[in-house]
Write a protein that binds this DNA or RNA. Sequence first.
DNA 1: TGACATCTACGAAAAACTTCGTATATCATA
DNA 2: TATGATATACGAAGTTTTTCGTAGATGTCA
Lengths: 131, 131
Amino acid sequence: METMKNKKPTKSELEILSVLWEKGESTVREVFDAINLQRKSSYTTVLKILQIMHEKNFVERNEESKAHVYKAKIKQNETGKQMLNEVMNKVFGGSALKLVQQVLENEVTSAEEMSEIRKMIEQAESEALEK
Amino acid sequence: METMKNKKPTKSELEILSVLWEKGESTVREVFDAINLQRKSSYTTVLKILQIMHEKNFVERNEESKAHVYKAKIKQNETGKQMLNEVMNKVFGGSALKLVQQVLENEVTSAEEMSEIRKMIEQAESEALEK
DNA sequence: TGACATCTACGAAAAACTTCGTATATCATA
DNA sequence: TATGATATACGAAGTTTTTCGTAGATGTCA
């Protein structure tokens, strides 16, 4: 049983989760290195945030070796869903349409990606009809 | 000239902006009332955040009457764009496709809305071809 | 006018989040 | 085994954000 209320990760927690999602299980040093590619940070800061996330049950860790190995426990999709819901409700007045519109207008969306998105929607529509 | 660097609103600033975007110009009391429909808060807290946002140039205000009237100055779209970029990069590994996919999977997206989104994409695609 | 409601301004406490230094343990190896 | 590199734990300072109380101005109306 998950006793912990599902809470949103903070900004720096998200930064670290992002690394874990991309690279999978990682040691503190590996996460630290990844983050330092983008901005200066310090080893113990990364360690501390990972420890905090461990307490919060956002990550799990394997303590077998000297350098603990961390692994994201909260799902990329769940987090994305929550965050998108927030943007949708707070910024786009609850409209998925407006949100997607904004994505397509502003993100660098390649023609290829666009066509994939279209296919996906068509498929979702036909599936909806079957129900 | 906008001297102020464009910064992201905080959580509670966003909450208030959301009201201003939806209702347009509002007094502190109106914003306060709107927010209290969703959660308990206190009048002076809302006032304070509005004052802070005024300093930050996120809102403008009309001081003619005793109760000042506030109006959002930063654009809904700009904010949405920024936030979506963050979600896209931190959660969806930079993929607009995955982001949109998540929206369609999880949000309650009506068939109608879905079809509108599809039309929009088709239009965007044909426009892209013309360029 | 006096009593009362409502407003702004503002300081400062409280809470949330981030950063870092230091103590201490462990491991490899010369 | 002594040294140096690298690890965790953890307290506490630093920063940002949120909340609220109080003071004083202004409007309303009996």
